[in-house]
C-alpha cells in the first residue's frame, strides 16, 4: 500500500486546536477516534477524528427520499450517479500532537495546519508509536468536541489497543492514566472505563 492509499481528504477549515477535512469519497471518513496526520512530515500535525458529517453541497436544496421502489439503498446511487456529487462528507479532527523535527510532541502545534494540506489516516505502526505516550488523553478531555469527549477517548484507546499484540496491557495502562486524570470524578471515570473494556 502506498501513502496515497491512506490519503483521505484535504483540510478545508483550520484552527489551533482543530481542523476540518473534506473527504475525497462520499462516506469515506475514517472511524471515530482514528488518528490522522496532515502537513509536511517535518511539521506534521496529528488529530483524532472527533466528528463526521455528510450534508448536501447546496444548503438551499433539501435532499428528497428516492428509494420507495428499491430494496437496497446502493441502488439509489447507481440509478442517480449525480448524487455522489451533490453530497459531501467532512470530518472534524481534534489536534493531539505535532512533529517537531524528529520527535512527536503531544501538544498543540505552534501554527495550525494549512488549508488544502492533505490528510492521511495514520498507519497502524504510526498510531502505535504515537500512542506510546498518553499525554494526548488530557488534551482531549479538555476540548469541547462534536461528540462527547469520553466517547471519543474510548474509541481512540480501543483502536490504539487493537493495533497492539497485547491489547489488554495497553487498556490497563491507558485506564490508569485516565484514572489519574479523572480521580476526583469516580462516576465519570467508571463509565469511561466500562466503555474501554467493551473493546473485547
Amino acid at each position: 500500500m502506498t501513502e496515497l492509499d491512506f490519503r483521505v481528504g484535504e483540510v478545508i477549515e483550520t484552527s489551533t486546536s482543530r481542523f476540518v477535512a473534506h473527504c475525497y469519497d462520499l462516506h469515506g471518513a475514517p472511524a471515530l477516534g482514528s488518528l490522522v496526520r496532515t502537513g509536511a512530515p517535518d511539521r506534521a500535525v496529528f488529530g483524532l477524528v472527533a466528528g463526521v458529517s455528510t450534508t448536501g453541497i447546496d444548503p438551499g436544496r433539501r435532499p428528497v427520499a428516492r428509494g420507495r421502489q428499491e430494496t437496497d439503498p446502493a441502488e439509489i446511487f447507481k440509478k442517480n450517479p449525480q448524487l455522489t456529487r451533490l453530497f459531501r462528507t467532512e470530518f472534524e479532527a481534534i489536534i493531539v500532537g505535532h512533529a517537531d523535527g524528529g520527535t512527536i510532541r503531544q501538544a498543540l502545534p505552534p501554527t495550525p495546519p494549512r488549508v488544502h494540506d492533505f490528510v492521511y489516516l495514520c498507519r497502524p505502526d504510526e498510531a502505535v508509536r504515537f500512542t506510546e505516550r498518553l499525554d494526548f488523553l488530557a488534551l482531549v478531555l479538555e476540548q469541547p468536541a462534536p461528540a462527547p469527549a469520553d466517547e471519543l477517548i474510548a474509541a481512540a484507546v480501543r483502536q490504539a489497543a487493537g493495533h497492539r499484540p497485547h491489547p489488554d496491557e495497553f487498556l490497563v495502562r491507558a485506564g490508569r492514566e485516565l484514572a489519574r486524570l479523572l480521580a476526583l470524578d469516580p462516576v465519570r471515570l467508571q463509565l469511561l472505563l466500562r466503555r474501554l473494556k467493551h473493546a473485547d
Binding site: 487498556l171 490508569r176 484514572a179 476526583l184 469516580p186 462516576v187 471515570l189 472505563l193 466500562r194
Partner: peptide, 25 residues
C-alpha cells in the same frame, strides 16, 4: 483520592476496573 470514591464505590467485581482503579483512585 476523594470521599466520593467511597460514597459511589467503583464496580470492583469487574477485574478490569479493579485493576485500573486500584492503586490510583
Amino acid at each position: 483520592v476523594s470521599d466520593r470514591v467511597a460514597t459511589v464505590p467503583p464496580d470492583y467485581e469487574d477485574p478490569f476496573i479493579a485493576r485500573v482503579m486500584g492503586g490510583i483512585t
